Computed example of a mutant assay.
Amino acid sequence: MIPFLDLKKINEPYETAFQEKLKSVLDSGWYILGNEVKEFETNFANYCGTKYCIGVGNGFDALVLIFKGYIQLGKMQKGDEVIVPANTYIASILAILQADLVPVLVEPKLETYNINPDLIISKITSKTKAILAVHLYGQLAEMDKINEISMANDLLVVEDAAQAHGAVSNQKSKISNQKSSAAYSFYPGKNLGALGDGGAVTTNDSELAKVIYSLRNYGSETKYYNDYIGVNSRLDELQAAFLNIKLPNLDRENEQRRTIAKRYLSEIKNEKIILPNWDFSNNHVFHLFVIRTKNRTDLKDYLNKNGIQTVIHYPIPPHNQNALKEYNNLSFPITQKIHDEVLSFPISPVLTIAEVDFIVSILNEY
């Protein structure tokens, strides 16, 4: 069986370095917000081209803390509206709700699976204060258009970059190298994955960074002195150490993913399979390779019988979830179509040429 994602194989090359870092952290006697976290924050900020990186407990917390930070700064208030793509993973929407804000769902483009900028304007009201741009599956949303809309309407822009580590805009700048803020997840299956949970906020906004540094640590900048009602959401020292080891290889591993994606796009020839759209720039890091098909269950079963594991990202759209009952009566036909038809194929830096050959041949025989 070709697994959808072989995390053991992905992390094997780092095992010796991981063991050495584990001993180093143990020997230091400092396990929370130590030198490894500081080093990773510096390294990742430099990688992204931003002034600040704040390590937090996970990608969800990164989003929540951005919104809570803006509320503390008076740039948002509870009850404000945040525009968000209707087909995102539900965590994006839950983060808005967790910050006591109101999600306003907007349809994506069927071609890119990212939010349709042309539909954003009609959703803007006097209560709209931000756009949450989600870079779904690893492909950048249309940030030039989104930033234009935000500037014209005095809106904040927050980027959910949980699936897009290292994506490059216009061949020159890493994601979030704008006036916006971005939330990252280092969940083990991400392109830059830890061996447990982890996340980060990147931004050029010094005021926002200062507030989030405090919010992640009980709202405290100086121990035992609390300025805000904060939370406990700190990037773990050991996970930061592991991420410091893996970060230098991220661009190379992303390029390996793009190489596999190019093969899939050029070699899969089957009218029953709708391949993703990509302009072959570095605006896509292929966290996932997602196709659409009319009879997903049949294709999934066929691939499983032939030893190829697939995953559905995601089977139920957020507006149909029990957790979001107030949205259940809304209609998002493009979102529904995407969730009914998408299927993700194996794609990772450790997928072999022979495995790609086999996957392509099996798909072409379907």
Rank of each mutant, 00 (worst) to 15 (best):
G74D: 11
Q139W: 02
A91Y: 06
N277H: 09
I131R: 03
N87Q: 01
P315N: 10
S185R: 12
L215A: 05
R258D: 00
V231Q: 14
E271F: 08
L330M: 11
F289S: 08
P349I: 07
I260G: 11
C53Y: 00
I2S: 01
K23C: 00
L235Q: 02
R252P: 03
E107M: 06
N226E: 06
G49Y: 14
K145M: 02
L288C: 07
E267S: 10
S206Y: 00
A183P: 13
G49R: 12
V342M: 14
M76K: 00
T16R: 14
M76H: 08
V134G: 08
W30I: 14
K145C: 07
H339Y: 01
L363T: 07
N304H: 09
N147W: 00
A45I: 04
Q171F: 08
T88E: 05
N177M: 14
P13G: 08
V56R: 07
R296P: 10
K129W: 06
K8M: 13
A141W: 07
K123D: 00
L119G: 06
K75D: 02
A182T: 05
N58K: 06
I32T: 15
E341S: 15
S150W: 05
Y302Q: 12
Q309V: 04
R292G: 05
L156T: 05
S28T: 02
I274M: 04
L22S: 10
T352I: 12
F286L: 12
K145D: 07
F18C: 05
A261C: 15
I260K: 12
N170I: 01
V311P: 12
V290F: 02
T50P: 09
E255C: 03
E41V: 04
I124A: 11
Q321I: 14
A209P: 09
G307P: 10
N270T: 08
K179R: 11
N114M: 11
G74V: 11
I338P: 04
K294L: 14
H313A: 13
Y224P: 00
K325N: 14
Q72I: 08
L5E: 09
T88Y: 01
I115M: 05
T42I: 07
E207C: 10
P315V: 03
Q256D: 08
E148L: 12
S176K: 01
Q239N: 13
Y89W: 13
P349E: 11
I245K: 13
G196Q: 02
I245R: 03
T352L: 08
W30Y: 09
T16F: 07
F67S: 05
